[in-house]
Write a protein that binds this DNA or RNA. Sequence first.
DNA 1: AGAGAATTCAAACAAACGTTTAATTGAGTT
DNA 2: AACTCAATTAAACGTTTGTTTGAATTCTCT
Lengths: 219, 219
Amino acid sequence: MPIAQRESISASVTATKMRLLDVSGRLFAESGFDSVSLRLITENAEANLAAVNYHFGSKEELIAAVVEKLVGPVNQRRLALLRQINLDVSGACQSIVEAFIDPVIEAASRGDEEDQKFCKLMSRCIASRDERITSLVLRQFPEVLAKFVDALRLVCPWISSDVAHMRIMFMAGAMAHSLFHYDKLVIISEGRCEISSLDSLRDELVQFISAGMLADTSK
Amino acid sequence: MPIAQRESISASVTATKMRLLDVSGRLFAESGFDSVSLRLITENAEANLAAVNYHFGSKEELIAAVVEKLVGPVNQRRLALLRQINLDVSGACQSIVEAFIDPVIEAASRGDEEDQKFCKLMSRCIASRDERITSLVLRQFPEVLAKFVDALRLVCPWISSDVAHMRIMFMAGAMAHSLFHYDKLVIISEGRCEISSLDSLRDELVQFISAGMLADTSK
DNA sequence: AGAGAATTCAAACAAACGTTTAATTGAGTT
DNA sequence: AACTCAATTAAACGTTTGTTTGAATTCTCT
């Protein structure tokens, strides 16, 4: 039924196309990109099986659309937050770490979906082991990496360029891993670790990584 | 009727079976567990297509064999190293971190294969997003987690149980992520970061994580 | 209302997958 | 030499996958 077609004639994005994007993201978060079939997607989106190929061309292009829609805004927000930091004040290192992490937490909390789903999908993008995914994600990442390395080395002059690059990688890994698995911590710890909210996870991540960033081997 | 029977004679492991295990590990490291077909495995192992089902029962059991053969010894070595640590001396925190990381580095360097392949496979096991894999890996992990949490809290009494659990998770994430992606750092950094050996990566990991472990929020 | 583009639909496609089957080999035992 | 049984082989099985097709339907605009 034509209800929401009041606006935007030329730049029209079909309701079905948006539904496919939305459902795909939710299913990809749960089971990964490969495990989710087009049949499962189109059934959940109440669309025809051929809808994905019609609107996106192929499953691969659907995945690309989901990934880029997800990581693009996050990286832009990271750069925006980084620009706002006064690198001269003490605590600037923690601000850098927050500029990297908070865009993900914000996006997760802002979403109409549950936080978990978003975190899992984001984690699958950041730390994917699939070359087809990483090539999509890493396309935007060189700029982010370079800017954060520069900022980090301004705040911590004793860190070499190589070490700075590695530490950014450590940060990404710690974040991606814990974003994906933090809800399992209760089980793995056999009840010894209580459920932690996403916000408390964020706080601990910032503390841990900030301390790691400030580490001085030569000291 | 061929039956994939449990090894009544424990010493008898066929040459074909060992070749399948070896080739599977190498291929799984490159492309992941799902993407590698039994046909590709058996061709590379110069065995018949039915060989996997004959010797292991199913592909799933082959994966389980590969995973357990890989992560089992590493976890045992972790616990052994942890027991040897004198938790009273200064620098004990770094020793704990080393006890977690070094077994992986040792196994990678000891292998007859290239380091990269081993690291990628190990990383796929540790930080897998596939429930079927994580359930295998995490079976042994509660003991490791509990022991490392206890040791960490002895050395850093100001850390709560919840925070200790999270920091172990951060450590695993930083390690797994960098083990898998460190060889890509040259490309992502657009040449600004030189190739780093596995040993130098290990040293920086230890420095970074040790500092993170020692972080004191209340300070 | 009617022409034309855009979308949806059911059906079929070829390819790849893990698994199973039945026949065959080959060394060790009686 | 006949028998045994684990191991290997070629071939086929039934599913599932992404993709394509052509007709039917719905929407847009004059």
